[in-house]
Write a protein that binds this DNA or RNA. Structure first.
Lengths: 149, 149
DNA sequence: CTAGGTGCAAAAGGTTTGCGGTTAA
DNA sequence: TTAACCGCAAACCTTTTGCACCTAG
């Protein structure tokens, strides 16, 4: 049972990052929207409901800062707008073309995402990004797409 | 020994695709620039040397069409401009921050890129994209970056 | 108090599109 | 012949930036 208390990380605890109200709101929105993997614009919409004065540029700035601080992750799928993800575990992203949603996909027990690749010796991976596309087969739209009438 | 005669794929053989001079030039440029993983702009520069009348929009259109036909692959690393790749084998891309190059990374013998992920049952992968970032450790710049004076 | 963050508006960069003329099949 | 494609320029969308004001520490 993973910790569900991610609604509001203790203020001022992002590795010495100066915690402004805007950054807190942006982080909280992302934690609340959690598995929706919202884009910057989508974060902006919800953030503006909670803090009407916030600007889109600030949302971008906050997302970049939080990403740099390692508090969140940026997710790029194709050329679409970046999405953001509060899940810090190593995982892949699966974009379902049926329901237009993004799912986090964890590693199989004991699996290692880098050992399957024939890396030239000396290569040092600092970051790996795995994005999949397909149909999830469980959502209503996908069942239809899969021919379950 | 893989077939190296990729300089110019027989005209009109991209799965029934209408083969225009522009598409042929774009494909040839990509095949020639091969492992450089050029961006659309870079393809445009070389294509224009061979066919001065070609336009950037056409290069984009051709790259998109060729990608759709499965003749080439589009490679997205972070938010940078898309790169294109004539290598149709399953492989990952490694971007070296030291020498600013992109390398193709093949799978280890017998490895399977999807089986390491704990996919919900019913999930059907149609496409997988693996991008890594780091230092390759072999180019001069990387050796410097790695502290080899 | 002040370094750093914010809001705004404008710019940048990559990519797509609309349209009249052109061309492969 | 003609549906599909090209070249051009303008539009589009996401993201970044410059600058004056504001605020957390």
């Amino acid at each position: 049972m993973a910790d569900q208390m991610t609604v509001s990380k203790a203020s001022g605890d992002f590795g010495g990052l100066r915690m402004t109200k805007q950054r807190q709101v942006v982080y909280d929105v992302l934690a609340d929207l959690g598995p929706k993997h919202p884009t910057a614009s989508e974060v902006f919409v919800t953030a503006k409901e909670r803090m009407p004065s916030i600007s889109l540029a600030t949302v971008y700035n906050c997302l970049e800062t939080l990403t740099g601080a390692g508090a969140i992750k940026q997710v790029n799928i194709d050329r679409e707008a970046s999405r953001y993800c509060p899940n810090l575990q190593p995982h892949a992203h699966f974009y379902c073309t049926g329901c237009d949603q993004v799912f986090d996909i964890g590693l199989e027990k004991g699996a290692d995402a880098s050992s399957i690749w024939a890396l030239p010796s000396g290569c040092l991976i600092e970051e790996m990004n795995v994005a999949m596309k397909g149909v999830c087969g469980t959502c209503p739209k996908c069942r239809t797409a899969n021919g379950h009438s």
